[in-house]
Design a protein around this nucleic acid. Structure first.
Length: 666
RNA sequence: GCCGUUGUAGCUUAGCUGGUUGAGCAGCUGAUUCGUAAUCAGCAGGUCGGGGGUUCGAAUCCCUCCAGCGGCUCCA
């Protein structure tokens, strides 16, 4: 809904006259403004309602102020820093003693009181001097005033009751609008993210426009905690860590290896189907390689490096590409051989700071389903289409129907210095490739010494156009991210949305102009000249560690049968049927089903209770009836029970496994 | 790495202001032979994260190191 403004009237009044009710702010030429702000007359305005994206953002920012107000009332010595809205809530950074759980509850209670009091939120313009006077004693605010309000200009303070905060706004009209909120947790941060700076307490919270959304959010959070892969990984005995001997390095236990191997076998099959030859490369290289690849220049702080007693220095691989390049270089390549595609389930090691490692999502060692294709520039389109098809096969197979997001990250031509591009010398026409941001000296022509260059984006344009065409040909809707490209080339990043609505980045397809230069790669063209290939880096799962974490949290450990470590758990009703149970188990195992029989002396109920944490795909109970009729009593994950002939069960489950069916069929 | 917070048996956990760690589950032994989410009894299992200190005495207080967890500019 678009409305023309009237000079001298407040936006709130204008909306009222136009019969618009319930708006909390207005969108004026794309910028959010308060209802109390006065129109100049030439604007087109749109109401913002609490339920909309913009409305929620305003509400969240206002909730941060409410939090600040409550904190200031309870802790008059506290010093406020900043309190923005976030994707799913808000926080406020405050210099104060760390609050306990009880303190947090008290603050939240105070917030509710302030909300009930329904203070109008009033926008006040103040000069720079007034602002500095008002916030003297709070250096964080003073810093912001000095940095953001030029001499002689004005800015705003938002006042609610006795509390006022330096803020651009806009805000909801009164504190009563902020009703359905919850303080979530307390974290700690440093002013400006600088570890030498003052420590601040960061209080996180969330707020919604209605109770239902808030409840849904909180339930989702609880569910996420229940599904935490670290917790389920322990329950299902999939992996472990031993932080004394290997901080950040996962150990896969037998059950975890089953899942990992299934994923790997699937990927290896696809690789071979799509023309990716498998290679295996060293994990440790002499430093000469890392100097050549450019990793020592940029990536060394993230690498494990060591020097032996004989003085030789080595680096453990943080990426697989150099190894694949060495293999590519073993013999000259003809244009006819291209593309050359190497794949490897390659384990890499990256030094993550001790405070940043955790679980399978931030390990120091992980295995990528890596692949490098060496291409002629004109082959990018076909290759990327082929990889996009692999991605689609992998994700639809594993998850069935799932939402996927595609981002195309491209160069920002306004900031060419950040990227590796070609330059043409304006005096002699020589073409050189460089990334200006990484140079210590000014760029000069190796031929004539000239320093005047014209940027040439031809390679980038050709590659980017082919990425776009590939996405279009595959009928993929994507978002374009200008300036988000890697410095060495454009890329496509692929995210999936899991069962709880969370986005995870998984696959990536990256064009690389950099490595071919560093390693002097070439293939021989039709006319006998040497031509530089481009490299496409690609990973489809991303890494097995991260992907395993996603699988666990998405399925809550209830994997599709083909991935399940325990596909059938067999329990005899009593000892008398042990031999029948054993017989069933061996039939299943011989058929290729991962089955386990429980012959212990516990009761049936106890066994069912105990096996629960393992999340077996199917539970088979056998007793007199089953033995007599050569059947099994099957219970699936939904808790449905049915009795069926052994052969029928084996046939159905094998079909389900072979088809990699994401849902149970029995 | 920095900040906060936590650390008791394989797992989950009790232990108030300092006075020889208490339990449930898992494990082992025995009894029980059971029809879809815990049968009974007994046994064993703990350097209270590591080290140092204060004290007659430390899981508890202090220092230090290690690790888990939550975070570490989504700018007023």
């Amino acid at each position: 809904m678009k409305i023309s403004s009237v000079a001298g009237e407040s936006f709130g009044d204008i909306l009222k006259k136009n019969g618009v009710k319930g708006a909390i702010a207005v969108l004026v030429n794309g910028t959010a403004k308060d209802l109390t702000a006065v129109a100049s007359g030439d604007e087109t305005i749109e109401p913002i309602f609490l339920e909309s994206q913009e409305g929620l953002k305003i509400l969240r920012h206002s909730a941060a102020h409410l939090l600040a107000q409550a904190v200031m009332e309870l802790y008059p010595d506290a010093k406020l820093n900043a309190g923005p809205a976030t994707d799913d809530g808000f926080y406020y950074d405050i210099e104060m003693p760390a609050p306990t759980e009880e303190d947090l509850a008290r603050i939240e209670e105070r917030m509710h009181k302030l909300s009930e009091a329904d203070y109008p939120i009033i926008r006040k313009e103040m000069s720079r001097e007034e602002l500095i006077r008002r916030f003297s004693g709070n250096r964080f605010k003073i810093d912001k005033v000095i940095a953001n309000v030029p001499d002689g200009s004005k800015s705003t303070v938002y006042v609610q009751g006795d509390f006022g905060d330096f803020c651009l706004g806009p805000h909801v009209p009164s504190t009563g609008y902020i009703k359905y909120f919850k303080l979530l947790n307390v974290a700690s941060t440093n002013y400006k993210g600088d570890e030498k700076e003052t420590r601040l307490v960061r209080i996180y919270g969330t707020v919604f426009s209605n109770e239902k959304d808030l409840k849904g959010f909180l339930q989702n959070r609880e569910e996420a905690a229940k599904r935490d892969h670290r917790k389920i990984g322990k329950e299902m005995d999939l992996f472990m860590f031993d932080t004394d001997v290997a901080l950040g390095f996962p150990f896969y236990t037998p059950n975890g290896v089953i899942v990992r191997n299934e994923l790997m076998t699937f990927m290896k099959g696809l690789n071979s189907e799509f023309g990716w030859e498998e290679v295996a490369t060293p994990h440790v290289y002499r430093d000469i390689l890392w100097k050549r690849s450019g990793h020592y220049a940029k990536y060394r702080p993230n690498m494990f490096v060591f020097t032996l007693d004989d003085g030789d220095s080595y680096g453990i691989k943080p990426m697989n590409c150099p190894g694949h390049i060495i293999i590519f270089q073993r013999s000259p390549k003809s244009y006819r051989e291209m593309p050359v595609r190497y794949s490897e389930q390659g384990t890499v090691y990256r030094y993550e700071k001790s405070g940043e490692v955790g679980g399978l999502t931030r390990p120091r060692m992980f295995t990528q389903d890596d692949g490098h294709a060496f291409l002629r520039l004109d082959q990018v389109l076909q290759e990327v289409k082929s990889i996009l098809r692999m991605v689609s096969i992998v994700y639809s197979t594993i998850f069935g129907k799932i939402d996927m997001n595609y981002d195309l990250s491209i160069i920002d031509k306004e900031k060419p210095d950040d990227f590796l591009i070609s330059y043409i010398c304006s005096s002699c026409g020589t073409k050189i490739e460089a990334r200006k941001a990484s140079l210590s000296d000014e760029l000069s022509c190796p031929n004539c010494g000239g320093t005047d260059f014209k940027p040439d984006f031809t390679h980038w344009d050709q590659a980017t156009d082919q990425l776009k065409a590939a996405l279009k040909d595959e009928r993929i809707v994507y978002g374009e991210k200008v300036g988000e490209a890697a410095f060495y080339g454009p890329k496509i990043d692929i995210h999936i949305k899991d069962a709880l609505g969370r986005l995870w980045q998984v696959a990536t397809i990256q064009i690389d102009f950099f490595m071919p230069i560093n390693f002097g790669l070439f293939y021989v063209n039709q006319d006998g000249t040497q031509e530089k290939p481009v490299i496409v880096h690609r990973a489809i799962y991303g890494s097995y560690e991260r992907f395993m974490a996603i699988l666990i949290e998405h399925f809550a450990g209830k994997f599709p049968t083909w991935l399940s470590p325990l596909q059938a758990y067999i329990v005899p009703v009593s000892e008398k049927f042990d031999s029948y149970a054993r017989n069933i188990a061996s039939q299943l195992s011989n058929g290729g089903i991962r089955a386990k029989v429980d012959l212990g002396s516990e009761t049936l109920n106890k066994k069912l209770k105990m096996i629960r944490s393992m999340r077996p795909s199917y539970i088979l109970v056998v007793g007199e009836r089953e033995e007599k009729e050569n059947t099994v009593s099957v219970r699936n994950r939904k808790g449905e029970q049915k009795v069926m002939p052994v052969n029928e069960f084996i046939g159905a489950v094998l079909k389900e496994i072979n088809e990699k069916n994401p849902v149970q069929t029995v």
